[in-house]
């Protein structure tokens, strides 16, 4: 059975503490501008790693989580983003001013069950785990963003102890062309 990745909590993780040389932007908690904010960030990414908008989609989810679930769209609260891209990796840190994602352990357990049922191809059971809901979830919450995120950010997803900052990293395989 393959090891199932988990969201980590570690304030000392290199994904969170190494901000030197990274670009930085801060945004108001404006739900209507999430995709625009994402475009401002992704314009620094080389086209080779944009993968038919998948990087954009994943960054948009991080900003949405910070604005909606972190700051609860409070216009007084900001989202801060540090980011760096190369042809080999994408590294971002997204920080909100909310109460923190306190259900990480619960979410990890939920996700483990989801993946176990998927590995067993038990789709009846998996149906109970395709969407992670909380008492604050609404109709616009898919409840699936972090499932994809944990697969996409193959260099890890790490929250700080306060759980208001998340560091993510994606490592890209370079396409090599053999010359005769």
């Amino acid at each position: 059975m393959n090891r199932i990745p988990r969201i980590q909590v570690d304030s000392h993780s290199p994904l969170l503490v190494r901000k030197e040389g990274m670009f930085y932007k801060e945004f108001p908690s404006d739900f209507k501008q999430i995709r625009y904010f994402t475009l401002l960030i992704i314009q620094k990414a080389p086209s080779s790693i944009r993968e038919v908008n998948l990087l954009e989609q994943q960054i948009s989810e991080l900003i949405k989580n910070a604005i909606k679930h972190g700051n609860r769209m409070d216009p007084q609260k900001k989202v801060r983003v540090w980011y760096n891209f190369s042809e080999d990796e994408a590294h971002l840190i997204v920080q909100d001013e909310g109460e923190g994602f306190q259900e990480i352990e619960k979410w990890n357990e939920f996700n483990e069950k989801r993946i176990r049922y998927f590995q067993e191809r038990d789709f009846e059971k998996m149906a109970e785990y395709v969407s992670y809901r909380t008492s604050r979830s609404d109709d616009l919450d898919g409840g699936n963003a972090l499932f994809a995120a944990l697969e996409y950010w193959n260099g890890g997803i790490v929250f700080d102890e306060k759980r208001t900052s998340v560091g993510v990293k994606k490592l890209f395989m370079r396409r090599t062309v053999e010359l005769m």
Binding site: Q57, E61, K64, A127, S131, D141, G142, G143, N144, A148
Partner: peptide, 20 residues
């Protein structure tokens, strides 16, 4: 369709759940 996000995926989950 060129793009979908977690809200879009959530919509499909909801539709499929009702369909089942």
């Amino acid at each position: 369709c060129e793009y979908i996000d977690s809200t879009g995926v959530g919509t499909l989950i909801g539709m499929f759940s009702i369909a089942k």
